[in-house]
Amino acid sequence: MSLALSVLDLVPVRADQTSADAVAASLDLARAADRLGYRRYWVAEHHNMPAVAATNPPVLIGLIAGRTERIRVGSGGVMLPNHAPLVVAEQFALLEAAFPGRIDLGIGRAPGTDPVTSWALRHGAGGVSDEAVSQFPEYVDNVLAMMEPAGVGLALRGRTHVLKATPSASSVPTIWLLGSSDYSARLAAEKGMPYVFAHHFSGSGTAEALDLYRSTFQPSPELAEPRTFLTVNAAAADTAEEAARLALPQLLQMVALRTGQPLGPQRLVEEAEAAAAEGLPDAHRSLLEAMRKRWVIGDAAGARAEIERLAASYGVDEVMINPVAGALAGTPGASAPGRVRTLELLAG
């Protein structure tokens, strides 16, 4: 493929896995992506979700970067209203110092969790309040400035105090804005930053958000022209039928999320097939089918052709794959062969 391919990892937790198993499987997946020539490997931030172990992107990024050789590693993304800007700047400046030229910081505005957990993330000090969200542009500016070698001046009690994320920075990570609405598209264009729309999650509004970003982009010292890519959910297997089987557990998980059902660990393929065989409400089945049509599910040739079609449609030269293939009963807990196979087949 002429496209650059990358990976988005939510570190899914299956019904047969511990948290340690899920992390081990993701490290194995990251090594496969590194070996196969993928450009970057991003991990998400979600909290208090039984099916997702990606709670702490900086920790995961350090683990992954330390177990790989050349692939860029980053966040997709850090939910900035959950954290003090200085903490984020320090974490990613330190990662950049340890792995120079290999770190991306993707920043989002959503909480990535429920309101109670958002409140707890900030030690009970308001959670992700309206004020924290409204200050998002300022928080982004603070993170950008704190990671620069000169740092940023903080005015406090009549004096200016210089804050630096690390004592002696020689490089900074690439910082991206992420979003699933036009808000981040406008902000990224205004600040001259790279931008990614969450096509894998939203599924609608992608073309409009990218057009808004590109048409209103203002060049910055860091970026002369718009820079973006596409994110897609994908499951590839040796046959299209097998790919459809492997995608079913994640499809059911997303139906549960969108319809307010209790969330548990991701089902094994056989468990998902049994649940589907029992019958889904018509509204849930139509939602599942709509999502299935937006995902890339097929054999190697079909899946690669669909990814190239999507890239051409949205005018991008990079596609970030969220490998959603589930696992069969009896799969070793610390592995995710369906996800690895998806990357292998898409890489060609």
Rank of each mutant, 00 (worst) to 15 (best):
E90K: 01
A189I: 06
V43W: 05
R304I: 11
V319N: 04
T113K: 01
E273V: 12
G108P: 06
N56F: 08
V88K: 00
F201Q: 06
A15Y: 13
D238W: 14
V162Q: 02
L60E: 02
G179H: 04
R70W: 06
D238S: 11
P281L: 13
P262G: 10
P219R: 11
R39E: 11
S180I: 13
T239D: 05
A145M: 00
G338A: 09
A189Q: 01
L287P: 07
P221C: 15
L210Y: 10
R258W: 12
G333E: 05
Q135P: 08
E289H: 12
R292N: 10
L187C: 11
I64E: 06
A277C: 15
V143C: 05
V59W: 07
V196I: 15
F92G: 01
D182Y: 13
I107M: 10
L60F: 08
G62R: 00
R102G: 06
A334C: 02
L36N: 06
A22D: 07
R258V: 10
G37T: 01
L252Q: 06
G203E: 01
M146Q: 03
A290Y: 07
S19K: 13
S286G: 15
E96W: 04
I175C: 04
A84L: 09
V162E: 01
A22Y: 06
A84H: 10
A65I: 04
